[in-house]
Design a protein around this nucleic acid. Structure first.
Length: 569
RNA sequence: GCGGAUGUAGCUCAAUGGAUAGAGUAUCUGACUACGAAUCAGAAGGUUGCAGGUUCGAGUCCUGCCAUCCGCACCA
């Protein structure tokens, strides 16, 4: 619909210039926008304001000329000139009815766009260290990343979800020592716990599992093989646990990428990915040696300071591995790579982008910084779990509020805003809880459809979508839909493609939550004012059509959010 | 000290450089004898942290302050 109206304005401009009414050297872009105030119509353009100077005319006079050529078109109900020279266009009922038909015909494909067609994007998110449970911030990034993938796929991108497993490095060694210490305690030994070792109760749980499965056999073995064995056993257990919790959330990754593979030589005694990564930067001319260390000149790409890749003692930094990892990503042929990181890593963004640029992929790496999550219960800040006395884990939160509420609340805020998550509020099933407000609208619609079809008919279909596909005729006459609330409903439905597209370009799924709440609100208003089942068969059919299109769009939005669309609640 | 984010109604948050800055919530007043009241209608609520600047137009862009949060390793 946007394209149609945009073309209309452009045609008016061209005609006015050709008729010598407007002295313009070139035709400006109409740049249609949605007026903030619905009273100003469906679409507005400031093209008269922008071209007044070059035309040497009063903006309102320019607007008069353009609007005179738009008025009277079948899609246009009214054209008004407002303020300093805005042109406000109100769509006709016929135009809105046409969009309604598009929405229902498209079903779950409504709002698909071609922005990413033919292009591959990888989204890497969560990537929690496999040495313990996920915290609630990881839950937010899981919801965000998964929804972002869905939104990008809707915009035509070919998308992969990836989890980077930090299974190398010192935190794994500390993890192994911590588990081994708890194991030795179970064997009756007294162990002095080093301050840097992990204290969490999950460490003892893992040790208990190993002890009950394997007994005391490791007690008198040398520390090195014992810790090595415990590292592998415990790490696999944690990783499986992470996968399990994420699956409960509805998030399943396509690729679990092991950091270790970056440190291992290729078959036949070749180099490691890390060495190849540094070599690539060296070839490009961004590597130098200083004070016994190997440096990456990241300041060439706007970083604050150059970064060390190989320390004076010969060890590689974490950043060196990350460069190898990102080189690997681009070598896999992705046109675009998106990382979702916690806010505590934002200082890392500049050097990572510098590395991507130095590898020849400037502008192909996006880093989304997710702010943290503050937990509340009835307005009181919550930090510690009652059960364990430690930080509340994501798994505990998920168990308590369920995947739908968790995802919805995590997605509701812009990523650069911290989320205040009230556990009790997320659990309540009332209007205070927006996820239930939206789901209720969907359930209410399904109830109407069942009622209209009759119980016997409804019982023959597994879903409301299947029922309405048979029961509500696709060629229904929509001209009876002319009430203000009906027009408002159709207007809101017509906005969906722009919202979906904007969410993809700006990597901002939170906009979909706002849209979902708006659409649910307009539907409830419609429901209050307009009875669906009336004595007039033509009106009833048209309204059922509108109701079913609303159901379909709600289902689509919720699917993009990764939240279920229940037919009964 | 340097860098980043944030600052909008009592509270939680919206607002591609556009018009009288919007929702929800809390407060107050109303609406079920037919499709789900888990709903709807109405009232009230603002110097967009402060001061300049850019322009037809600034919550939005620029500069300088103030406040809050987070980073600032040859850690991972």
């Amino acid at each position: 619909m946007r394209d149609a109206i945009s073309a209309l304005v452009t045609a008016a401009l061209v005609a006015a210039v050709q008729a010598d009414e407007l002295p313009l050297a070139e035709i400006p872009d109409p740049a249609l926008e949605r007026p903030r105030d619905p009273a100003h119509g469906d679409w507005a353009t400031s093209v008269a304001l922008r071209s007044a100077k070059s035309a040497g005319m009063n903006p309102r006079a320019v607007a008069e000329i353009i609007s005179a050529r738009i008025a009277g078109h079948a899609d246009v109900d009214a054209v008004e000139i407002a303020g300093p020279g805005f042109i406000n266009i109100r769509l006709s009922a016929a135009a809105l009815q046409r969009v309604l038909r598009e929405a229902r015909d498209a079903g779950l494909d409504f709002g698909r766009s071609a922005a990413g067609v033919g292009k591959r994007v990888q989204v890497e998110f969560v990537s929690a260290n496999p040495v313990g449970p996920m915290h609630v911030g990881h839950g937010r990034w899981a919801a965000l990343g998964d929804s972002m993938v869905r939104v990008l796929a809707h915009a035509g991108w070919s998308v992969e979800r990836e989890f980077y497993v930090n299974d190398a490095g010192v935190q794994m060694e500390i993890f192994a020592k911590s588990v081994a210490a708890r194991y030795l305690e179970l064997c009756g030994r007294t162990v002095t716990f080093e301050p840097e070792w992990y204290q969490g109760s999950y460490i003892a749980e893992i040790a208990r599992e190993i002890h009950s499965a394997e007994g005391d056999v490791w007690m008198d073995r040398p520390a090195a093989p014992r810790e090595s064995h415990f590292k592998e056993t415990a790490y696999v257990a944690v990783l499986e646990h992470l996968k399990h919790v994420l699956h409960e959330m509805g998030v399943d990754f396509d690729v679990w990428f092991s950091e270790r593979t970056l440190h291992e030589p290729t078959v036949g005694g070749g180099s490691t990915a890390i060495v190849r990564g540094i070599d690539a930067l060296r070839t490009a001319g961004y590597i130098y040696d200083l004070d016994g260390a190997v440096w990456f000149r990241s300041t060439d790409f706007g970083d604050d300071k150059d970064r060390v890749l190989v320390k004076a003692d010969g060890d590689y930094t974490y950043f060196a591995a990350d460069i190898a990892y990102h080189k690997n990503k681009f070598d896999r042929g992705f046109d675009r790579v998106i990382n979702i990181w916690g806010a505590d890593h934002h200082g890392y963004v500049a050097r990572m982008k510098a590395a991507a640029a130095a590898l020849g992929h400037e502008g192909q790496l996006d880093v989304v910084i997710g702010q943290l999550v503050n937990l509340f219960r009835n307005g009181e800040a919550v930090r510690m779990s009652k059960r364990t006395g430690e930080m509340v884990t994501f798994e505990e939160l998920l168990d308590e509020v369920g995947a739908d509420a968790a995802r919805y609340w995590f997605l509701r805020r812009n990523t650069d805003q911290p989320v205040d998550f009230d556990i009790e509020l997320a659990r309540t099933q009332s209007a205070d809880n927006p996820v239930f407000y939206v789901q209720y609208a969907h359930a209410r619609i399904c109830s109407i459809l069942r009622k209209a079809a009759g119980d016997e008919v409804a019982a023959r279909y597994a879903t409301a979508a299947a029922l309405s596909a048979e029961f509500v005729p696709g060629d229904a006459d929509l001209t009876p839909l002319t009430e203000p609330v009906e027009l408002a409903l159709m207007r809101k439905l017509s906005e969906f493609p722009e919202v979906a597209e904007g969410a993809a370009t700006d990597l901002a799924p939170y906009r979909l939550t706002r849209y979902a709440e708006d659409l649910a609100a307009v539907f409830h208003q419609f429901y209050t004012v307009c009875r669906v089942m009336t004595d007039d068969p033509a009106l009833t059919t048209a309204r059922l059509y509108a109701v079913d299109a609303t159901r379909s769009v709600l289902e689509t939005v919720l699917a993009l959010l990764g939240v279920s669309a229940p037919e009964r609640m």
